[in-house]
Simulated assay, not measured.
Amino acid sequence: MSDQDRNVPASVVQPALVLTTLVLNPRHPAVQAETSDLCRMHSRILDATVGMPDAGPRVLWAQPRPDVLAVRACEAVTAARLPRGYATAIHHRPWTCPDQPGRWLMVGVLNPGRTRRLGGPTRNQPDRRRLSGQPLLYTTPMRQSTWLARRLDGARLVDCASVRASTVRGGHRTERTITVRRVEMRAVWQVDDPGKLVDRLHAGVGRDKTWGCGLTLWTRAS
């Protein structure tokens, strides 16, 4: 190894992932149906990424505004993967998470909260099953910030703001209604060990990743 190589900061090797940002056509009938039904939009994501290699990180998506859809996958979502006229503009860029120590800006659509467990084994019922109750969702900025600060090893939360929250619903094939709370969050992190972030950020942060939560975007903080 040369002296020049020794002076190059170590970086984190990441699999190639692509962020596709779609500006949706509000007059398209499929757009109208899917932006008003969470489960229909989830099906659209599945259709748009079918056939892509599935050995890497899971597909994540977010809809920060009704007319914008972001999809992170191992390949770009092109117009050929969508109904004709579905989007008025399509943009692609690499998706990366922090690969160097320092200060980083994160934006993401998340659902701060935790799962509540009910039941479980007792002395008289050692085989009693533990069930999932209704999740506890954090609604105040302080609790959301505290929740986020615990999510990432290798980084310290410097500042956090919840920009907006919304509730979306969809009709599931089992005839039940899916209800998801989404919170758009902006945060500044001091990244100390980027290697510890990779698996978490690839998997997605928090709850309801299937339903448009968990995707985060990272840029160097100025």
Rank of each mutant, 00 (worst) to 15 (best):
M1F: 12
M1I: 13
D3A: 15
Q4N: 08
P15G: 09
L17D: 08
T20K: 06
T21G: 02
L22T: 11
V23W: 13
N25C: 00
R27E: 15
H28M: 07
H28K: 05
P29N: 10
P29I: 02
Q32Y: 03
Q32T: 06
Q32G: 07
E34Y: 08
T35Y: 01
L38R: 12
R40I: 11
R40K: 14
M41L: 15
M41P: 01
R44C: 12
L46Q: 12
L46C: 05
D47Y: 03
V50P: 00
V50D: 10
V50Q: 12
V50S: 13
G51Q: 08
P53M: 02
R58E: 14
V59M: 03
V59Q: 00
W61F: 15
W61N: 05
Q63P: 03
P64R: 03
R65Q: 15
P66T: 08
P66R: 09
D67I: 00
V71A: 01
A73D: 02
A73L: 01
A76N: 02
A79H: 07
A79C: 00
A80L: 04
L82H: 09
L82A: 04
R84E: 15
G85I: 02
A87R: 05
A89E: 13
I90R: 11
H91W: 04
R93Y: 12
R93D: 10
P98K: 01
Q100I: 02
Q100T: 12
G102F: 05
V107R: 11
G108A: 01
L110G: 01
N111C: 08
P112L: 07
R114M: 13
T115P: 05
G120V: 11
Q125K: 12
P126I: 06
R129M: 03
S132K: 09
L136W: 14
L137Q: 04
T139G: 10
M142H: 11
R151K: 10
D153T: 11
G154I: 08
G154A: 05
A161L: 00
A161S: 06
R164N: 07
R164E: 11
R164S: 12
A165D: 09
V168D: 15
V168T: 14
R169S: 15
G170S: 01
G170W: 06
G171S: 14
G171Q: 08
H172Q: 03
T174V: 07
T174H: 09
T174P: 00
R182M: 06
V183K: 00
M185V: 10
R186T: 14
A187Y: 11
V188A: 05
Q190L: 13
V191W: 07
P194C: 01
G195Q: 05
K196D: 04
K196T: 12
L197H: 09
V198H: 10
D199V: 02
R200F: 12
L201Q: 08
A203E: 12
V205H: 06
G206E: 04
T210G: 03
G212A: 04
G212Y: 09
G214C: 00
A221S: 14
A221G: 05
A221R: 06
